[in-house]
């Protein structure tokens, strides 16, 4: 399992459109990805669950990657987050 922490900088946080784009990107990655914020977890490939975490600007999220291709998935996600969120 791989683990990645990131602080959201985009001003709208993970609300509708950014969350949708994030989830769609996660869906392209082969392994399981869990998104955690403040002790609550959600499947990063499910939009309503991700939106349910109510992630705002300045908040830290932790992503857990598990399964085939987890290392590659983590580095891909890291660059996605830095560019978009």
């Amino acid at each position: 399992m791989k683990q990645l922490s990131y602080t959201i900088t985009c001003k709208e946080g993970l609300h509708a459109r950014p969350a949708d784009a994030f989830v769609k990107y996660a869906q392209t990655l082969p392994c399981d990805i869990l998104l955690e914020k403040g002790g609550k977890q959600a499947d990063a490939k499910r939009l309503l669950a991700v939106m349910g975490l109510n992630v705002m600007q300045g908040e830290e999220i932790v992503l857990y990657f598990r399964g085939v291709g987890e290392s590659g998935a983590m580095s891909a996600m890291e660059s996605y987050l830095k560019t978009h969120l």
């Binding site: 509708a16 459109r17 939009l47 669950a49």
Partner: peptide, 19 residues
């Protein structure tokens, strides 16, 4: 395009696995 993406979000909600 940015506004059109509102309906992409609707589409994703509609096909959301939890929903």
């Amino acid at each position: 395009d940015e506004l059109a993406r509102i309906f992409d979000v609707h589409h994703s909600m509609l096909f959301d696995a939890d929903f």
